[in-house]
Design a protein around this nucleic acid. Structure first.
Ligand SMILES: Nc1ccn([C@H]2C[C@H](O)[C@@H](COP(=O)(O)OP(=O)(O)OP(=O)(O)O)O2)c(=O)n1
Ligand SMILES: [Mg+2]
Ligand SMILES: [Mg+2]
Length: 1062
DNA sequence: ATCCTCCCCTAC
DNA sequence: TAAGGTAGGGGAGGAT
């Protein structure tokens, strides 16, 4: 165990910098600055600005509301579905476009509620409202709270400064009523009044100062010293006390919010020097809430985990209560307390508020103008000093000279990580990322303070309001850090100085600032300025400044690159001047080499970018991940896919490529040194590209399961799982499809096998321990394709051929649709996830009577269909059904990654991604597919990509299937078969996976007409049932896994990351 | 050449 | 106990 830890420690990459630096020249005392300077500057513009920003944001019908850290997840979609189940998709579609009843309403949910956080979040999202994860007075219009004890609000209305505190039934009832009901009857306060005892308690919690301090109130008069703040610290508080001192009218509520002015009152108030004493919420109170939730959640699981425990898990007790095994809402509860999740999602929350303002849409004219403008470019970099510590410590004056760090754990033996250390602590060598036990070893008197994420959020908000007041070009780097392009705005140092002063006055936290001519130098200057300073690097000083720096001081040079440079005897920036750019590019890559060469000279051409289009959305958990049986992993994937789907929906984007990342305990490594950590792991990732951008949880889950199973790992070794979606497209941004021949072919090819697929899935009920399960349902004869190829029967991989074909977005403007779709499983699983379809609704032509009602087609399923198919569906159903997208590239074979990995076909696309799998001999690792592998290798040149033909062999197509199809489709289908028959058989033409054959067979034995009966049609039900089958693990898969492991062990060339941690 | 895919690296 | 996430940049190598 000790050795294990050593290994981890040695593997851990640590960055050792952040050495405290001396006060910089140009540093200015914040005390000398006056907040009033802003007000004096242009009071009206401030107010105009606030209103403008609010209006901008209000216009954003896209709400980012990233991250579901506060929510319970499990029943979320169920609740939504329950509300909608009767309406069906079309109705929901109408809701999404016409019934944005919560437009302008932004809720924050306090404590445990019914519906849960997650459910409320979904509801708000669906009905045009906003769900805030972190409370901020200026953003929230209503606080939702079920019960008083949970809320810990003792005088809700008073402490919330007029924000209504409303029971969640208000949300539910309003949706049911189709309009926003008055929240008054739902006020929580009424409950309070009905319970005198509680009311008495409430008054005890009242902050007298809040009641007696007339507003506006200049906090400087009341909090000139830290000693005054102590009062606050001693008072009982709740998270609801995170208030702004915003004067509120009695009738504040939705209406006053919707005028758009309320959201940025903070700025105005700040600029007037107003601060509320109760500004900061007590982290202890927050913790209490979190803990109570955690307990509640844990209780439910402990039983189950006990049932599971005992399978040799060395830390079973801990796992039972602190891992995926012991918490059905592990993902959300974990994120709720994760600092890295907080800072990782912060930017999205920021974008949701400033996004439309920061649209970066500077015309080229402007850019050219700026480029040519005579004045020197000026960039300010602002970074809060030891941010997390500073925010918490401002109310703990007794700590402010002592070494303090933020950490979950305060144990000398703890493995909690230091999030931030103040400068006294850094003098002892304490650094962010360190284990607290190591920090305490360096600094025995280190004081540990807990996190207060809502306060960080709030302070960051104030800071950015100030930044935006001074500069129209603000690039948010993180919650405590930003670049400002202040070219042509006067003395940049003066601006930076004022900003620093205002930040301190508004937040009582110090910021440091760097000023220079580009981002690189500004950032380096900030480093020099810290703490609480300002540093300016004049053009003439650049050279001398850079020479002093070590290479790792350059942004972008981390541990790895530093080591590489070191191996070339390049230690300092001045060393980099000695070598040619050619050399650097040869050695480190073109861009990296150029970066090194330029940065070493202080050259940085990057612009201050206000916003950037997101390219990926994902969530991962590498802490507390412990599975005993595949079902554990499955349940985890449900929550993970729900999380990612929610993020996609919240961001109003869909994506096509779904990537699953898995961390697996490295062979021979024991328990991680970090409690519940992932330890030393190998990293794996595999991706699948679906035919059409999706944000559907069902599809994400399906793919995730498939990918996960394809690894065939022993789930007990899995230590981390991540799910990411890329190739994002904005919802509604797709191009229209035009009708075409190919599209009709596509639809046929979709529908026919689809039915079959449904049958198959239904025939393979989930049974995770049944290794024979899949085989039972298979023919023992290889499936003969039209091309005469046979497909091996026993591939476990073929058990999960769920995905639509990978098609490339390359021909985005080429609307011709080649009919190369494969098997599609995507038939409406149920009535969830309907939002998006409605968006594109125009006028829906009445569907042909012999088609299933559109309401039975799952929009999320539709969303994943290839564009050509969608186009055809749309032709039939009208615009409502189809989101346009174009893709006509030949699809990759529709085989599961396992099959692919085994060499079922050799195109690169199908190769699965992680490096371990990529070894040349990787093909041979998995025995079950050996026959196919060999055949595939020998009979097909690598360059030949198997063309996918979704149609099963005509001989196996049950006539009843055809008759069940709409006439027009049937005709097309028949034509298609005819055409294929005529066509010269191409051996790569038809690669029907085994399940497809099965499907066809099963179809034959079933009354196909029946499939279309009922509401929803039977096949919808079948499809639903099929989902679990997807994830079933069987012995065959296991076998593959062990073989894989062996092969992997043999491979010494695996470029697998074995670093503990991330 | 250029694009795409699968990663690693970096920063907060 | 403890909450090791997130997203972009870019290199390597294959496909086109
Ligand atoms: N490994 C890390 C790095 C940062 N953070 C969080 C805590 C920090 O307070 C905040 C901002 O990061 P900074 O790099 O700006 O660090 P600080 O603000 O704490 O210190 P400095 O004064 O050096 O900026 O992000 C974290 O939790 N873990
Ligand atoms: Mg900082
Ligand atoms: Mg920072």
């Amino acid at each position: 165990m000790a050795g294990e830890e050593k290994e981890e420690e040695s593997l851990k990459r640590k960055k050792v910098d952040n050495v405290p630096r001396g006060m910089a020249w140009g540093a200015q005392s914040f005390a000398s600055a006056r907040i009033s300077s802003i007000r004096e500057k242009d009071p009206s513009s401030v107010s105009d600005f606030g209103r403008y920003m609010a209006e901008k944001r209000r216009k954003l019908n896209v709400q980012y509301n990233e991250d579901s850290s506060n929510k319970l997840l499990n029943n979320a979609t169920a609740a939504v579905a329950a509300l909608h189940s009767k309406e069906g998709q079309i109705v929901v579609a109408e809701i999404s476009t016409k019934s944005r009843i919560f437009n302008g309403i932004s809720i924050w949910v306090d404590g445990f509620t019914v519906p849960t956080h997650q459910e409320l979040r979904h509801l708000m999202l669906q009905y045009g409202g906003v769900f805030e994860n972190y409370f901020r007075r200026e953003l929230v219009t209503h606080i939702i709270c079920s019960t008083l004890p949970d809320s810990k609000i003792k005088n809700p209305r008073s402490l919330s400064r007029g924000l209504p505190i409303v029971k969640p039934e208000w949300i539910v009832d309003s949706i049911a009523a189709g309009r926003v009901l008055s929240w008054a009857p739902y006020q929580l306060q009424r409950i309070a009044l009905e319970h005198p005892n509680q009311r008495t308690l409430q008054s005890a919690y009242l902050n007298p100062k809040l009641d007696h301090c007339p507003l506006p109130l200049d906090w400087r008069d009341n909090y000139p010293t830290y000693s005054n703040m102590m009062d606050i610290d001693l008072e009982p508080r709740s998270e609801l006390l995170a208030l702004e001192n915003v004067p509120t009218s009695d009738n504040q509520g939705p209406s006053s919010v919707q005028d758009g002015a309320v959201n940025f009152t903070l700025l105005e108030e700040d600029l007037k020097g107003i601060e509320v004493k109760a500004d900061e919420c007590s982290e202890t109170e927050n913790q209490g809430v979190l803990e109570s939730h955690g307990k509640k959640d844990s209780v439910a699981i402990v039983d189950r985990s006990k049932r599971n425990t005992g399978a040799g898990y060395s830390d079973a007790a801990a796992a039972a209560t602190h891992s995926t095994l012991g918490d059905d809402n592990f993902v959300q509860n974990y994120f709720k307390s994760s600092r890295l999740h907080f800072i990782g999602t912060w930017r999205n929350r920021y974008q949701s508020r400033y996004g439309s303002f920061n649209d970066n849409s500077e015309g080229q004219d402007q850019q050219v103008f700026r480029a040519k403008s005579g004045s020197d470019p000026a960039v300010i970099h602002i970074d809060m000093d030891c941010f997390f510590v500073a925010v918490v410590v401002r109310d703990r004056p007794e700590l402010h000279d002592k070494p303090v760090a933020v950490c979950h754990s305060d144990s000398v033996r703890g493995s909690g990580e230091i999030s931030s250390a103040n400068y006294p602590a850094r003098a002892f060598g304490v650094r962010a990322g360190m284990f607290v036990r190591d920090a305490k070893a360096k600094c025995p008197d280190l004081e540990i303070v807990p996190y207060n994420f809502e306060a960080y959020e709030q302070v960051a908000d104030k800071v950015y309001n100030i930044l935006h007041h001074h500069c129209g070009r603000v690039q948010a780097v993180s919650c405590d850090e930003a670049f400002l392009d202040v070219t042509d705005q006067g003395d940049p140092c003066q601006i930076a100085s004022v900003i620093r002063s205002q930040i301190f006055e508004a937040t009582r936290c110090t910021a440091s600032a760097g000023v220079s001519k580009n981002k690189l130098l500004a950032r380096l200057a900030t480093r020099k300025a810290k703490p609480n300073g300002l540093y300016y690097i004049a053009p003439s000083e650049v050279e001398g400044f850079m020479d002093e720096l070590a290479v790792e001081d350059l942004p972008g040079v981390g541990w790895t690159l530093k080591e590489k440079l070191k191996s070339h005897n390049l230690h300092k920036c001045s060393d980099l001047l000695r070598v040619s750019k050619d050399f650097l590019q040869r050695e480190f890559g073109v861009k990296t080499g150029d970066m090194l060469w330029s940065y070493a000279r202080g050259i940085d051409t990057r612009e201050v970018q206000q916003a950037q289009i997101r390219k990926s959305i994902g969530a991962e958990v590498n802490w507390g991940v412990r599975f005993l049986v595949p079902e554990d992993a499955h349940r985890f994937l449900v929550t993970l896919s729900t999380e990612v789907a929610t993020r996609l929906q919240t961001a109003a984007v869909k994506g096509r490529t779904i990537t699953l990342k898995v961390k697996r305990r490295k062979e021979g490594s024991g328990e991680p040194s970090k409690f519940m950590g992932c330890g030393v792991c190998d990293n794996f990732s595999r991706s699948e590209t679906v035919g059409y951008a999706t944000d559907s949880q069902e599809i994400l889950l399906r793919v995730a399961k498939q990918l996960f199973n394809s690894f065939a790992f022993d789930v007990r070794d899995v230590r981390g799982v991540g799910l990411q979606v890329t190739r994002l497209e904005a919802v509604g941004s797709g191009q229209s499809l035009k009708g075409g021949q190919g599209q009709q072919r596509a639809l046929k090819s979709w529908l026919a096998p689809e039915i079959s697929k449904v049958m198959l899935d239904e025939s393979a009920p989930a049974d995770r321990n049944s290794g024979n399960q899949t085989i039972i349902h298979r023919s023992t004869e290889p499936l003969k394709t039209e091309a005469g190829e046979s497909i091996p029967v026993k591939s476990p991989a073929l058990d999960v051929p769920k995905l639509p074909l990978n098609t490339s977005a390359q021909d985005n403007n080429d609307l011709h649709a080649a009919a190369e779709s494969g098997m599609r499983n995507f038939i409406a699983p149920d009535t969830k996830d309907r939002i998006q379809v409605g968006r594109s609704s125009t006028k829906a032509a009445p569907p042909p009577t012999n088609l299933p009602p559109l309401s039975e087609l799952d929009p999320s399923v539709l969303a994943s269909l290839p564009p050509e198919i969608l186009a055809e569906i749309r032709e039939v159903y009208g615009e409502l059904a189809a989101q346009p997208v174009v893709s006509s590239k030949p699809a990759k074979n529709y085989l599961s990654p396992v099959a692919v990995m085994k060499g079922a076909h050799k195109t690169k696309t199908s190769e699965v991604s992680n490096r371990v799998d990529r070894r040349e001999d990787g093909i041979r690792r998995v025995l079950p597919l050996e026959p196919l592998t060999e055949r595939g290798e020998s009979s097909r040149p690598p360059s030949v990509r198997p063309e996918i033909v979704a149609l099963p062999p005509a001989s196996q197509l049950d006539p009843s299937v055809m008759s069940a199809l709409p006439l027009s489709l049937r005709r097309e289908l028949e034509q298609e078969y005819k055409r294929q028959q005529v066509k010269k058989p191409d051996k790569s033409t038809l690669r029907v996976s085994e399940p497809e054959k099965l499907c066809v067979e099963r179809c034959s034995s079933t009354s196909l007409e029946d499939l279309w009966t009922g509401t929803p049609p039977k096949w919808v039900h079948m499809f639903k049932e099929s989902q679990d089958a997807v994830c079933s693990t069987n012995d065959s898969v296991r076998l593959g896994g062990s073989l894989y492991d062996n092969a992997c062990a043999k491979k010494s060339c695996c470029q697998v990351s074995t670093v503990e941690g991330c």
